[in-house]
Design a protein around this nucleic acid. Structure first.
Length: 464
DNA sequence: CTCCGTACTCGCCCTTACCC
DNA sequence: GGGTAAGGGCGAGTACGGAG
């Protein structure tokens, strides 16, 4: 019995639980070879197909460990369709094991090849190729404009969980890359400069310390290796290793009782210690809090600039905390922000009116005070947290999911988006969350079409 | 060593173009 | 219009490499 795809959807297929002895995508029995879409057989379909239980009718099979996050696009779509078609109700967001017949295996393999070829064609068509000669052969190399990396930060014995990043560059340069890494490290372990750590890279699965990445030349090598890793479908890891801070640790051993009372407040303002402090005699206990008399000229200047900045940006609206206000939007300024800003002013990179070019000064993190959130701010301590303000702001400005989908229907075609309304409501998904949903999450709510997902993401960004 | 993922080969079948 | 060769798609099976 053979049916094409259109015919299958016109006929009522009874729902079933998935059995490991059948092909997930076509319901072929992997023992007797029967198509079980409409009939059943007497084979033990709960037995996992293996080399030692093959039959004359079905000699081949493929075991598949499905993981939505690491699967090719066609496979995701294929699995999702089959899940709906046969009513397995398998959660495709989580990884699970299933079996495929050789025909479906080949089909998926071919479609993925097609997809990859198309992607390559698109890339070749849109990006200017650089021709480089290596050992006498001409090789086509696409310039890297996007870096997908895992960044691992090692701070002494402590190793932070890897951070996944996806950075885009118009014209990738070592200085831009270095700045981005510096910003990321600062965001995770506090204000840090690139002179305070070593940078290295390696393939995710490789062992060893990796290759040092510390200048333009090594960065060019890194870009070549990056393309090689990506073409081999391997992930690239950047390792940030903080330099030895033994001297600082020694100082901490001498901390006095006062430290405990003030540490939580003051560590955020901690400024790199001058050499004079590091050479302190052993045994003479000292406080981690820098004393003005022990600061060098540079640090005194930076401290002075910080004080002036703090005076300048006191926010009356936010309980006398500090905000940078632009176009009516308030960006909360922390001690780290002030420290960075002061250092940039000291280096003549910016002034008192213009915040540094750093992610933490992005106005994307700012909030627009509303009658709702501004009136409550002074009374509620927690509400001064910017993230809460952002959420409140989203809620006040974004349309309801229903309105949003109806608008998209009007724009792109009737019932193209509102057909998913029920699922969005069931999952309590708001408009301003749509652009952050992963492919797996979209799959889970039944949206497998790439175009639909991308439209939802693009349109929802307007309300962020 | 086993399992899994991917690429590849081989044979069959269907479609299309060409020739008589 | 009928016969035939060429080409492409598909299904079945195998080989190989990487990871655990």
């Amino acid at each position: 019995m053979s049916l094409n795809e259109n015919e299958v959807f016109e006929v009522q297929i009874y729902t079933r639980k998935y059995q490991i002895g059948t092909c997930f995508t076509c319901q072929k029995c992997l023992y007797c070879g029967k198509d079980l879409s409409f009939v059943n057989c007497h084979c033990n379909k709960n037995e996992k197909p293996a080399k030692n239980n093959r039959t004359a009718k079905v000699r081949g099979y493929r075991g598949l460990c499905y993981d939505a996050n690491n699967s090719q696009p066609f496979l995701k779509e294929f699995m999702n369709k089959s899940n709906l078609k046969f009513g397995y109700e398998v959660n495709l967001e989580t990884s699970f094991y299933c079996s495929l017949c050789t025909a479906c295996n080949s089909k998926i393999s071919r479609e993925n090849n097609k997809f990859e070829k198309e992607i390559k064609k698109e890339k070749n068509g849109t990006k200017s190729d650089i021709f480089s000669e290596e050992s006498g052969t001409l090789i086509v190399v696409n310039p890297v404009t996007e870096l997908q990396l895992r960044i691992s930060i090692k701070n002494g014995k402590e190793v932070l969980p890897s951070i996944l990043v996806n950075w885009s560059f118009d014209d990738i340069k070592y200085i831009d890359f270095s700045t981005k890494v510096e910003q990321l490290v600062s965001e995770h372990i506090g204000l840090t400069f690139n002179s305070e750590y070593f940078l290295a890279y390696k393939g995710n699965s490789e062992v060893g310390a990796g290759t040092l990445l510390d200048n333009e030349i090594t960065f060019e090598e890194f870009l070549k290796d990056f393309q090689r890793y990506i073409s081999n479908k391997k992930k690239v890891m950047i390792i940030v290793t903080m330099k030895d801070k033994k001297k600082n640790k020694k100082k901490r051993e001498y901390k006095d009782d006062n430290l405990e009372n003030t540490a939580s407040e003051e560590t955020e303002e901690e400024i790199p210690k001058p050499k004079s402090v590091k050479t302190k005699k052993k045994g003479s206990a000292t406080n981690r809090i820098p004393k003005e008399s022990k600061l060098d000229e540079k640090e005194k200047m930076i401290g002075e600039i910080m004080m002036q900045l703090k005076d300048k940006y006191v926010c009356n609206l936010h309980n006398h905390k500090h905000c940078f206000v632009k176009d009516g939007r308030h960006l909360f300024l922390s001690n780290v922000s002030f420290s960075m800003w002061a250092q940039d002013i000291f280096k003549n990179n910016t002034d008192f009116e213009t915040p540094p070019n750093h992610a933490i000064f992005s106005m994307l993190h700012s909030v627009k005070p509303t009658s709702c959130n501004s009136s409550n701010l002074n009374s509620n301590e927690n509400s001064s947290l910017p993230i809460l303000n952002i959420i409140q702001n989203y809620i006040s400005e974004a349309p309801s999911i229903n309105e949003f989908l109806e608008e998209l229907d009007r724009k792109y075609g009737a019932n193209k988006f509102t057909c998913y309304l029920q699922k969005f409501e069931e999952e309590e998904i708001r408009v301003n969350q749509l652009f952050r949903l992963s492919d797996a999450e979209y799959n889970f709510i039944g949206i497998s079409k790439i175009g639909i997902r991308q439209t939802l993401r693009d349109e929802s960004k307007k309300f962020v």
